[in-house]
Design a protein around this nucleic acid. Sequence first.
DNA 1: GTTATGACTTCAC
DNA 2: CGTGAAGCCATAA
Length: 111
Amino acid sequence: MRHAAPQDQDEAVAAIHAAILRIPKGWIATYGQIAAMAGLPRRARLVGRVLQRLDPATKIPWHRVINAKGEVSYSSSRNGGDSLQQHLLEREGVEFDARGRCDLRRFRWLG
DNA sequence: GTTATGACTTCAC
DNA sequence: CGTGAAGCCATAA
């Protein structure tokens, strides 16, 4: 058989969603961390791609997912507001720097 | 088929 | 801590 896993990618996306949903409130996780706990060690980019393509009314706490720099990633065509994500995190107790960065070693979810 | 781009990561300077 | 370069993977043209 040539195709052993035709919808393998779909499972990966589902795993990413589950991992993000697993993040407790007031904590944050990086793309690489999410990818790793989802079983995708080298697919941090895939996580970002999934988050950009998910629905505007999703129940996924996408605002808890940030990059390795501890800052909220921004896109040219992101849907919604620019400071929305930071605002949501601040609401959950995450402190942000004046530059829009937070201390990863303090708020990063260990899993 | 190749080339370019992107909600990324990591190392080196 | 900032900037630059290389790496990895999926989507689009």
